[in-house]
Amino acid sequence: MTPEQRHRILALTPLERLNEGWLKLGIKATHRCVRGPETGMVMVRGRIGGTGNAFNLGEMTLTRVSVVLDENAPDGGDIGHGWVAGRSREHAELIALIDACAHKAHWARRIDAELIEPLTQALADERVERSQLAAATRVDFFTMVRGE
């Protein structure tokens, strides 16, 4: 799994659920922040007509942080980055920590199988549920036959 795929699931998952899954995993790693956490904004862009030139739609709050694992490695510990919509420093920091831990192959396997995989499933299930609500409001047209 690529770091980008992992980051997507971590950012889309609500913090509470992410925290719970991470604690269950039991990976013990201490870290410190090397940049941020910092809350700012992202300028969200759209496209004219959905497919044309880009335009600036408006901004959204965004929090970022970079962490480094406390390790006795000669070139320092692994670095991780977290970027998440909103103002939750905790969420951004947890994403960054998991990103950093995933640099180690043995942890990456567990993170992907035991954390990302079930979280992916949970998000997919929620999307299906919302989609079912929408599907219940789908219009079935029928034609009135006149005369005969």
């Binding site: 910092e38 700012g40 992202v42 862009r45 959905g50 919302r130 929408a134």
Partner: peptide, 22 residues
Amino acid sequence: RTTLPRLADSVPLKTEAMHVER
């Protein structure tokens, strides 16, 4: 809004990939 720094510009939204509600 004026108190916050701009950290990024987004990739243009892919509205065709919207999870449609309506």
